[in-house]
């Protein structure tokens, strides 16, 4: 059971009704949902288009006001300014100022958190290093590809070392390598006891990083729980062992059949996911041409995020 101070987001009967010009109800985008997100959790918001994911996130960020219900972030109202200093947000599309360079963009967002000039400069350097874009620090954001702009968007979401990170479709527009980095970053933040709320259509991404998921459909929560509870098939077991030769495999098959009386089983080689294969291939191909790469892969994490 979580203590009250560990409840980061608490929503009770949250409802959002969009109205028309004459104030008549038009769409019930969020329909009385209640949920909690606790400290250190990575929670995934899932659902088809129009299920209320983005609306819920916008209500959490005070970009929309709830029609009914109660929502507390860090125990405070969503309008509270101090609460916002603990939140990092990566929107679905990266809304950045095209005439600012990567460095200026991070400096600008750093200053919005009232950080000192020295601290902003330090964090900007570390973040640019972390997202592998140090070499493009002076380039204008307007010249960046979608993926590069997305990386800058992610960096600005982390500039305040947030306790709660809200990611709306974090891997959209990213190549598999960047997707992998993004997921590694989320896992890293999870280890640092940060709370992450992720909304995504890509179920694989959610499955890989989330502890818990909330599935929305037509503004209602239709399923909620830890991935283990929801996805584990308790009726079956998987045994992973090193590769066996033909006679050994035959022995194993006979043992399972004759000693354990199991008829319904299969012995096969496991498949690597395509994403893992792609990342591995790219690493191999990179070789000496890394200086010409659009975005350089980086394994480093910003120092201030490690604290």
């Amino acid at each position: 059971m979580f203590q009250e101070e560990d409840i980061i987001i608490s929503a009770k009967n949250l409802t959002k009704i969009f109205k028309d010009f004459w104030n008549r109800p038009k769409v019930k985008a969020v329909n009385g949902i209640s949920f909690e997100v606790n400290r250190g959790e990575v929670v995934g918001l899932l659902g088809p288009n129009g299920s209320g994911k983005s609306t819920t996130i916008k209500i959490i960020l005070n970009l929309l006001y709830p029609t009914a219900g109660e929502l507390k972030i860090f125990g405070e109202n969503t309008k509270d300014i101090n609460t916002k200093s603990k939140i990092g947000y990566l929107p679905e599309e990266t809304y950045l100022y095209k005439f600012l360079s990567a460095e200026e963009t991070l400096n600008f967002f750093g200053h919005l958190f009232n950080l000192s000039v020295k601290e902003v400069r330090k964090r900007t350097d570390e973040l640019l290093e972390m997202i592998g874009m140090s070499y493009a620090r002076k380039r204008l954001v307007g010249e960046f590809s979608k993926g590069m702009a997305r990386r800058i968007g992610m960096a600005q979401a982390l500039i305040n070392n947030p306790e709660l990170l809200i990611l709306d479709e974090p891997t959209s527009s990213l190549d598999p390598i960047a997707c992998n980095e993004m997921k590694n970053l989320i896992k890293f933040l999870k280890n640092k006891k940060k709370t992450v709320l992720v909304s995504s259509h890509l179920l694989g991404d959610i499955e890989e990083v989330c502890d818990r998921i909330i599935i929305l459909y037509e503004g209602r929560i239709v399923a909620e729980g830890s991935l283990e509870d929801l996805l584990k098939i308790y009726e079956k077991n998987i045994i992973t062992i090193p590769r066996q030769e033909g006679t050994q495999t035959e022995k194993l098959r006979r043992y399972l059949k004759e000693e354990l009386f199991i008829e319904d089983f299969s012995i096969d080689n496991p498949n690597m996911s395509l994403e893992k294969y792609f990342v591995k291939t790219m690493e191999k191909a990179r070789g000496d041409n890394s200086e010409f790469a659009e975005v350089k892969q980086s394994d480093t994490m910003a120092e201030y995020l490690k604290e």
Partner: peptide
Amino acid sequence: HMLVVKPV
């Protein structure tokens, strides 16, 4: 969006 979600 990027401004109003910040502590300003």
